[in-house]
């Protein structure tokens, strides 16, 4: 068991109006698993992902990584976890607009190392970033800024950025949500390949049922709880249409 969440609860407040998002979520993620979390908009999928990745704090409940509790770690340790153990990709890519694709990919490493440490290793780190960008098919776009890249290219750069620190878990929040079908499928192919060849653990959140049939396991989140082992209907043309 790589990642285990137990009775996670989270309530948001909108103008003092309590909006419970998660009401006791239990979730286990195995090492090397490609897990999909599906659910309607606002069902709390993204919140769950943020909690797993220590970007946000749960009101109650626990999260364990390798049997070690991580949700109550001091901020500094959680920063390190996000930097090295978790990789994030988002629906809107979230690249830094002032930096080139290569610099964006190098950003987690720049955060990892001190200025001197980074400077001493810069050649090797740069090679690593170039290799990863090559792997996601962006070797021709190293010096381009996000504004000069297409949506698919931006998402591939974001994947490269998430992979640069060799994380143990990739947390993907609607990774194809902003892409057309062809580009979405390419991104999915990249993720699947990473999961199969490198044994990368992936937790993907989506509302697009079309994407999930190829993942190892699917759970559905509804009313703030996980429904055990959601049965996903085989993809139909309707489902593909509904996804778009």
């Amino acid at each position: 068991m790589l990642l285990r969440a137990a009775s996670l609860a989270k309530t948001y407040y909108k103008n003092k109006l309590a909006v419970p998002v998660l009401r006791g979520v239990d979730l286990d993620v195995d090492e090397g698993e490609f897990l999909s979390v599906i659910g309607a908009s606002g069902s709390g999928k993204s919140t769950l992902l943020h909690l797993l990745g220590t970007l946000d704090k749960a009101d109650s409940g626990t999260i364990h990584l390798d049997g070690r509790r991580i949700d109550n770690l001091p901020a500094r340790d959680r920063d390190v976890l996000r930097n090295r153990t978790f990789g994030f990709i988002f629906q809107f890519y979230h690249l830094l607009p002032e930096l080139t694709a290569l610099e964006n990919v190098l950003m987690p490493l720049m955060i990892t190392y001190s200025t001197l440490g980074y400077w001493a290793r810069r050649g090797a780190l740069r090679k690593r970033a170039e290799a990863i960008l090559d792997r996601v098919g962006l070797s021709h776009r190293l010096k381009h800024q996000p504004a000069e890249l297409s949506g698919g290219e931006m998402q591939r750069a974001a994947i490269a950025r998430a992979l640069i620190s060799q994380p143990r878990v990739l947390l993907a929040d609607e990774p194809t949500g902003n892409l057309d079908t062809a580009n979405g499928q390419q991104i999915m192919a990249v993720l699947r390949e990473l999961n199969r060849n490198d044994g990368l653990t992936i937790v993907m959140v989506t509302h697009n049922l079309d994407l999930v049939h190829d993942t190892d396991r699917v759970v559905r989140i509804a009313d703030g709880r996980i429904e055990p082992e959601a049965k996903i209907p085989a993809p139909t043309f309707d489902a593909v249409g509904a996804g778009k």
Partner: peptide, 16 residues
């Protein structure tokens, strides 16, 4: 603001 969120997601601390 969004860049700051990204940096924090990538592991940058408050002090950074």
């Amino acid at each position: 603001t969004r860049d700051i969120g990204i940096l924090k997601a990538l592991g940058a601390g408050n002090s950074g």
